[in-house]
């Protein structure tokens, strides 16, 4: 649940969209967003959050502090 993309940092490269195992990432009005209800923090798929690992920009994909962490 809790990852989000910082819109000002995002370059719209779509790398994260391809890697997300849950199809939780999509382009919306020219920037990429994570659908909170689809994101599992990659739990059940990979050890690391794919969007964070692949994103070329530091601190572009971050934990969304407003939401509770995902619990499987």
């Amino acid at each position: 649940m809790p990852y989000k993309i910082v819109a000002e940092e995002c370059t719209n490269c779509a790398a994260c969209e391809t890697e997300c195992p849950n199809d939780a990432i999509l382009e919306k009005k020219g920037t990429f967003v994570i659908l909170a209800d689809k994101c599992t923090e990659c739990v059940g798929h990979y050890d690391d959050a794919q969007c964070v690992e692949v994103c070329p920009i530091p601190d572009c994909v971050v934990i969304d502090e407003r939401l509770p962490r995902y619990a499987a």
Partner: peptide, 16 residues
Amino acid sequence: APACNIQCHYCNRKYD
């Protein structure tokens, strides 16, 4: 093809 799978020191992906 905008996405990349490596980072090089001579490239700045923000620079566009």
